[in-house]
Structure formats: structure tokens, C-alpha cells
């Protein structure tokens, strides 16, 4: 199939994946030769990559903008908080993922009948709902707001986040080439038409939503073990709902590497701003966002594609120029 096998037909397209693979190997080895600070920062960046890519897997693919990222991340955080002492880190991540998957499946079954902005508002509501629910439960039964989480070293968390990130990247690439991915694309381009050519859009959407939430929950479970102390406000911080969206817009959602690049650049900028300008960094974020939406509506990847396209056109134009 053309859409599915485009990479096979054009080996040139392999350049980018190979480059990324090389960078990933370097990243994987980095804790051996960098300072702990770098390992911590790279871990945070990987968390953002995981969240952006998994957000893009559903929202980018279907056009249903979800702000529930923080909700599923928070579910993972609480899985680690509750079971941290009895399970190993990979098992915590797996369990965080499964819990998020199940919750997303149920939430999706109810909310994915909503379209457009109604869906978006509802997903943000889920974050607040879980946050307040946890707050109520903690104060009622635990008599305090927060709790301590078993802690792992930065390096351990780094490696498990690294593995999760690789899996999410592979899944993102893989889904695009399956019929499931094609169905998502059809839904994005016209859901009514998609339904009428034989796509069970409700089930496809719910499944994609749940799959993307799995990685969010797993990432939450891993990050919690780095924080040692959590409370509902930390676990369900809405920043983690909005930042992945901004990162995908910034990087460009049409290509798998868009969210990846967006997350890296954005997370790095955030790190710089937060240390040097702690009081104005959100403001600076806003300005960067507005400027990038106006000048690069398809993100960084869109700009790169444009340049590549122009170079190709210039080459091709000379060959078949009309007399």
C-alpha cells in the first residue's frame, strides 16, 4: 500500500531514522560520561518526549484535542505511591500503564461521543476530577495531603524512561503504517465519511485514546519515584496537560519526529528559562508559542519539510522546465 509502504519505496527517507537511532544510542550511553545534572535533565526531557508522542498518537492523529494527559500521568504517579514498596520500577510502570489504559478506555467510551471543544473541556475536567477525588480520599482516610514515594536513583529512572521512550517512538511509527493508523487518519479527515466507508470510529478512537494513555501512566509511575514526595496537586498538575500539546504544535504533529523535536527544544528552553528567569518563564513560553503558531503553523518539522520541498522543486524544475 502506498500509504503504508512509503518508506520501503524511498530509501532516502531512511536517513532521518538512522540519524535518530544514532542520537538515541548516544543518549542511552550518556549517564556514563555526563554529570548527574545532565542525567536528571535528560530524564525530564524524555518524559516530555513520551508525553508528546503519546498525546500525538491519539490527538494528533484524530484531531480530538485531549487535555487529559495530566490525569493519566497522575494515575501512574499514584500507582507508584501506593505500590512502590512492593513492586520493582518496571512493574510499577507496567501497572501505571495498565491502570491508565483501563481508565482511559472507560472515560473514552463515555466522552468520545463528544466532538470538538466539548471533548477537550471534558478531558480537562477529568484531570480536575481525579485531583479533587484524590485530595478528598487522602484527607479523609490518610489525614494528610501528600505521601512519600519509594525512590530510585536518577540513573535507574533514566534507563527505564529511555526504554519506554524507545517503545513509544517505535509504536508511533508502527501505528501509522497499520490499518488502525489509516482509520485514525480517515477519522481526522472526515469522521462522518469514515464511519460510512466501514470504519467503526468509536471503537478505533477509544482504543487509540487508551493506548496513548498507557505510556502516560507508565511515565507518571517512573517520574514519581524521582520525586520522593507527591500530593494530588503535584500528581495532577495541569502543566502536563498543556505542555505536550504546545510541544507538538511547536515541533509539528504530522511527522513522528515533530513531537520528538518539539519536546526536546521546548523542554530545554523551559529548563533554561526556569533557572534564569523563574518569574517570567511562563510569559516567555506564551510569546514563543504565539510566534511559532503564526510563523510555523506546521511546526519545526513543517519548516524543514518546506525547505526540503523547495530544494527538490528547484532541482526538479530545472530538469522538466517547460519551454
Amino acid at each position: 500500500m502506498k500509504l503504508i509502504n512509503e518508506y520501503k519505496a524511498n530509501p532516502k527517507k531512511l536517513i532521518l531514522p538512522v540519524l535518530v537511532a544514532a542520537l538515541l544510542v548516544l543518549l542511552g550511553l550518556s549517564p556514563n560520561f555526563t554529570k548527574p545534572y545532565a542525567t536528571i535533565m535528560l530524564g525530564t526531557i524524555m518524559m516530555y518526549i513520551i508525553l508528546s508522542l503519546s498525546w500525538n498518537m491519539f490527538s494528533g492523529a484524530t484531531g480530538y484535542v485531549s487535555l487529559a494527559t495530566a490525569a493519566f500521568f497522575g494515575v501512574g504517579v499514584y500507582v507508584s505511591a501506593f505500590f512502590g514498596s512492593s513492586l520493582s520500577l518496571p512493574l510499577l510502570m507496567l501497572m501505571g500503564g495498565i491502570f491508565s489504559f483501563v481508565i482511559a478506555f472507560l472515560v473514552g467510551a463515555v466522552t468520545l461521543r463528544l466532538r470538538g471543544v466539548y471533548f477537550t473541556i471534558f478531558t480537562l475536567g477529568i484531570v480536575k476530577l481525579l485531583e479533587q477525588l484524590m485530595l478528598y480520599l487522602e484527607i479523609t482516610f490518610n489525614k494528610t495531603r501528600g505521601r512519600f514515594v519509594v525512590s530510585y536513583t536518577f540513573t535507574e529512572v533514566f534507563y527505564w524512561l529511555f526504554i519506554l521512550m524507545i517503545l513509544v517512538i517505535l509504536l508511533s511509527v508502527f501505528i501509522k503504517r497499520t490499518r488502525f493508523g489509516l482509520a485514525l487518519k480517515c477519522i481526522a479527515e472526515g469522521e462522518d465519511a469514515a464511519m460510512h466507508i466501514g470504519i467503526g470510529s468509536t471503537m478505533v478512537k477509544i482504543l487509540a485514546f487508551a493506548i496513548s494513555s498507557f505510556a502516560m501512566g507508565a511515565a507518571g509511575a517512573a517520574m514519581a519515584t524521582r520525586w520522593t514526595y507527591i500530593d494530588p496537586y503535584i500528581a495532577f498538575s495541569t502543566n502536563l496537560s498543556f505542555l505536550p500539546v504546545l510541544m507538538v504544535i511547536f515541533g509539528g504533529g504530522r511527522h513522528v519526529f515533530g513531537p520528538l523535536i518539539g519536546a526536546v527544544v521546548f523542554a530545554y528552553i523551559q529548563e533554561l528559562l526556569i533557572t534564569d528567569f523563574p518569574y517570567v518563564y511562563m510569559l516567555a513560553f506564551g510569546v514563543i508559542m504565539i510566534v511559532s503558531i503564526i510563523f510555523m503553523p506546521n511546526g519545526i518539522v513543517g519548516v524543514i519539510e518546506n525547505i526540503v520541498g523547495r530544494i527538490k522543486k528547484a532541482k526538479g524544475g530545472r530538469k522538466n522546465a517547460d519551454p
Partner: peptide, 30 residues
């Protein structure tokens, strides 16, 4: 649709970011 009943829409709902052929292909695939 799977049972063999297909329709078109009053206002054409083609998939805008796919080619004509890909549009038709989606019907054949699903």
C-alpha cells in the same frame, strides 16, 4: 456499510489531505 449498503453525502465529504486515489482506496480497504 460492511453489509453492502453505501452512501454519498449531499455536500461531498472527501478526505482533503489524501489524493483522489487514496480516497477511493480507503473505501476499498475498510
Amino acid at each position: 456499510c460492511h453489509m453492502g449498503l453505501a452512501r454519498t453525502f449531499q455536500k461531498a465529504k472527501n478526505f482533503p489531505d489524501m489524493t483522489v486515489r487514496e480516497n477511493v482506496l480507503m473505501g476499498a480497504v475498510f
